[in-house]
Design a binder for these strands. Structure first.
Length: 576
RNA sequence: CGGGGCGUAGCUCAGCCUGGUAGAGCGCACGGUUCGGGACCGUGAGGCCGGAGGUUCAAAUCCUCUCGCCCCGACCA
C-alpha cells in the first residue's frame, strides 16, 4: 500500500475528550474517529488491526472446535421475555419498536438467540457437544461509556456458546475455551492473567476473566504471587486475618458514646483501635433485613455479600428500617440483643475478635468487652462468612504465608459456565442415551475485540506513540522514502517496495510505503506514532552508506544493509 | 440518575468577569527558501461563537430553557 493513495491521517494533538493513553493514541494516529458517545468509526488502519485480531481469534476458536456463524443483531422481545431478561436486563438494553409496534432490542449478547437456534436443531446427545461462535457488533447502552474503545456502547465482540450433554462435557468445553483464550492473548503478545470472577445474578458454577494488566484498567484484581491465586476484587476471598489479642471483661459493659456514629469516632472516644470495634450494617435483601458484622477498619464487599445472602439485589437499609429492626438509631447497631428475626452474618474478621466494642442498639450507647460465644451466639444464630473487601497485603485464601496484591486490569475476555439456567427456561433439551429428556449444559465465552486492541496499546506505547505487537500492527513494515520525488532514491525505494511485498505477503506480513512528499521528520514522527514494528528507510544518506536502514519500533539495533539484503533483514526481524 | 466541568475555524484553545463589527497556534491552499526526527517567510481560504427564547440601541459575552460532550460516583450476563 502506498501511503500517498491510502487513507491515514495523523494529528499532532489528541481530541480533548480522549482521556486514557490508548484512546489518545488511537485518535492521534488516525485509527478511530468518534461519532457519538461510545460509538466509533474504525478508520482503515484501525480496521486492519481489528481484522488481524479477528483472524487470530477465528483460527484459535476453530482449532478448539468452535464453529462460526452469524446471528442477527436485532432480536425480538419475545425471546428475552422467555429467558426473563426483558424485564431484568434494565436500561442497558437498547429497545426499539418496528412500524407495527413489535418490540425488539439490539442484542447486547446472544444467549437467547443461540439457545433458540440450538433447541430447534438439536434433539439428541449424539449431536452434542456443540460450540458456536460469531464475531459481531454488540450494543449496550452503557450509563457512562468512556476511554474510547475500552468501554464503548457499540463494540465488536467474539461470543461463543457451548452446549454439552452433561457437566463433564461442559468442563471439557470450558477448559478448551480457557486454553484457546490463553493462546489468543499470548499470540497477541499481551501480558495477562486469568482470575476468578463473579458470575453475577445469572448463576452458573464457574467464571473466569482474562485481564490485561494495565494501570488504566477499570477492574481491580487481587492476586497472590506465592501460589498464583487471582480473582476480581469483586469476589476475591481473603485468608484468615490475624486476630488482635482478646480483651478482658466478665460481661459486656454498656458505655455512653454520645454522637459517635462512625467507627472512627467510637474508637477515638473509647481509646481503642478501629480493628477492635465491630461495625454492624443493616441491609435490605430480597428476604427481608440482614445484619452484617465486620471489623471496624474493613469494608463490606457487596458482591460477596450478595452471594452469601442470595437474591437479586441488596441495598443499605434506611434509618427508619434500622430503627424498626434494631430498636436503636442508625449508627448504633450491634449484634448483642439483635432480634432473631434479623439474619445476622459476621465476617470472619469480626468473628475472630474477642472483647470488642459494638453498638448497643440504643442511641448514644455502645458495648465494650463483648464476646461472640458468650454474648451473641448463646441467644441467636450467627453465620460466619467471608464478605470483606480484599486490600493490599491481606493473607492469601489459598496458601499459607502468601499475601494478596492488588493491581488493575482490563477485562478483555470473560468465560462462564452457565449450566442449565438458559436451557431450562427456554426448554433447550435433548434426549440422552437412556431416552430421558434433559436440558443442555451451556457455557458462554466473550472476548472484546476493540478492547483487546486498546489494551495492547495501553501495554505497548512510549512517548512517541504506539508500539504494536507484531501480530496486531496495521502494517508490519513501513518503508519510508525520504526523497520520493528524486532519483536515485525514488527508484531504489520503489524497487524495495516491490520486493518487500512479494517476499512478505506470503508470510502474512504487509508493507506501507510512505511515498508522501513530506519532510523526513514528519515521516519519522508518523512512523513512530502509528507504531509499525519494523521500519525501512531509504534516503540519499542511507544509499551513500550502502543501502537502506532497518530498525525496530521497539528499539534496539539500527542497521544499514545493502538493498538486495533488505528483505532478509526485515524477515529476520519479524521472525525474531 | 446525583455531583462537577466544557461547547468559539478540521484539531488544541484565547476572548466572556466588565456587552460595542470574531482571534492565535497547528492543519489546509498558493508562492518562495529548505530537506535524516513534526522547517521558515509571505499570501489566502475557512465561523449562524451548539440550538431556541429573552434583556438591550447593541449579545460569543448577561438571563432562561434546551441539546451535545467530558470527568467523579452509583450501575453493569
Amino acid at each position: 500500500m502506498r501511503w500517498s493513495n491510502y487513507y491515514l491521517m495523523t494529528a499532532r494533538e489528541a481530541p480533548r475528550d480522549a482521556e486514557v493513553i490508548s484512546h489518545q493514541l488511537m485518535a492521534r494516529s488516525g485509527l478511530v474517529r468518534r461519532l457519538a458517545a461510545g460509538i466509533y468509526t474504525m478508520q482503515p488502519t484501525g480496521w486492519r488491526t481489528l481484522r488481524k485480531l479477528m483472524a487470530i481469534v477465528r483460527r484459535r476458536m476453530e482449532r478448539a472446535g468452535a464453529v462460526e456463524l452469524s446471528m442477527p443483531a436485532i432480536q425480538p422481545a419475545e425471546l428475552w421475555e422467555e429467558s426473563g431478561r426483558w424485564a431484568r436486563y434494565g436500561v442497558e438494553l437498547l429497545r426499539m419498536e418496528d412500524r407495527h409496534g413489535r418490540r425488539f432490542c439490539f442484542g447486547p449478547t446472544h444467549e437467547e438467540v443461540v439457545t433458540d437456534l440450538v433447541r430447534r436443531d438439536v434433539k439428541s446427545y449424539r449431536q452434542l457437544p456443540i460450540n458456536l461462535f460469531q464475531i459481531q457488533t454488540k450494543f449496550r447502552d452503557e450509563i457512562r461509556p468512556r476511554f474510547g474503545l475500552m468501554r464503548g456502547r457499540e463494540f465488536l465482540m467474539k461470543d461463543a456458546y457451548s452446549f454439552d450433554a452433561d457437566e463433564e462435557g461442559l468442563d471439557r468445553s470450558y477448559r478448551s475455551m480457557h486454553a484457546a483464550y490463553s493462546r489468543i492473548f499470548e499470540a497477541c503478545g499481551l501480558e495477562y492473567s486469568v482470575v476468578e470472577a463473579d458470575q453475577g445474578a445469572i448463576g452458573g458454577s464457574s467464571s473466569h476473566e482474562f485481564m490485561v494488566l494495565a494501570d488504566t484498567g477499570e477492574s481491580a484484581v487481587a492476586s497472590c504471587a506465592a501460589c498464583g491465586y487471582g480473582a476480581n476484587v469483586e469476589r476475591a476471598e481473603v485468608g484468615e486475618l490475624p486476630a488482635p489479642p482478646a480483651g478482658r471483661g466478665e460481661a459486656p459493659i454498656e458505655v455512653s458514646t454520645p454522637g459517635t456514629t462512625t467507627v472512627a469516632q467510637v474508637a477515638e472516644l473509647l481509646e481503642v483501635k478501629p480493628a477492635q470495634v465491630v461495625k454492624t450494617l443493616i441491609y435490605e435483601t430480597d428476604d427481608g433485613l440482614a445484619a452484617v458484622a465486620i471489623r471496624g477498619d474493613r469494608e463490606v464487599n457487596e458482591v460477596k455479600l450478595l452471594n452469601v445472602l442470595g437474591g437479586l439485589g441488596l441495598r443499605l437499609a434506611t434509618a427508619g428500617q434500622v430503627e424498626a429492626a434494631t430498636g436503636g438509631p442508625l449508627g448504633f447497631s450491634g449484634p448483642v440483643g439483635l432480634s432473631a428475626d434479623v439474619r445476622l452474618v459476621a465476617d470472619r474478621s469480626a468473628r475472630a475478635l474477642a472483647g470488642f466494642v459494638c453498638g448497643a442498639n440504643r442511641g448514644d450507647r455502645h458495648f465494650a468487652s463483648v464476646r461472640w460465644d458468650r454474648d451473641v451466639a448463646s441467644t441467636r444464630p450467627v453465620e460466619r462468612v467471608d464478605v470483606v473487601t480484599a486490600v493490599h497485603g491481606d493473607p492469601c485464601p489459598r496458601c499459607s504465608g502468601g499475601e494478596l496484591r492488588l493491581s488493575r486490569g482490563i477485562e478483555v475476555g470473560h468465560i462462564f459456565k452457565l449450566g442449565t439456567t438458559y436451557s431450562e427456561k427456554m426448554n433447550c433439551t435433548f434426549t440422552d442415551d437412556g431416552g430421558r429428556l434433559r436440558p443442555m449444559e451451556m457455557g458462554c465465552y466473550g472476548l472484546g475485540i476493540g478492547r483487546t486492541a486498546a489494551a495492547a496499546i495501553e501495554q505497548g506505547h512510549d512517548r512517541n506513540g504506539i508500539i504494536w505487537p507484531k501480530p496486531l500492527a496495521p502494517f508490519t513494515v513501513v518503508l519510508c522514502s525520504l526523497d520520493p520525488g528524486a532519483e536515485p532514491v525514488r527508484s531504489a525505494a520503489d524497487g524495495l517496495y516491490g520486493e518487500l511485498v512479494d517476499r512478505l505477503a506470503p508470510a502474512g506480513f504487509d508493507v506501507l510505503y510512505d511515498d508522501r512528499a513530506e519532510r523526513p521528520g514528519v515521516k519519522f514522527k508518523d512512523a513512530d506514532l502509528v507504531g509499525f514494528p519494523v521500519r525501512v528507510v531509504v534516503g540519499a544518506r542511507s544509499l551513500a552508506n550502502g543501502g537502506a536502514e532497518v530498525s525496530n519500533r521497539s528499539g534496539g539495533e539500527r542497521e544499514v544493509v545493502a538493498l538486495d539484503e533488505v528483505c532478509e533483514a526485515v524477515v529476520g526481524r519479524l521472525q525474531r
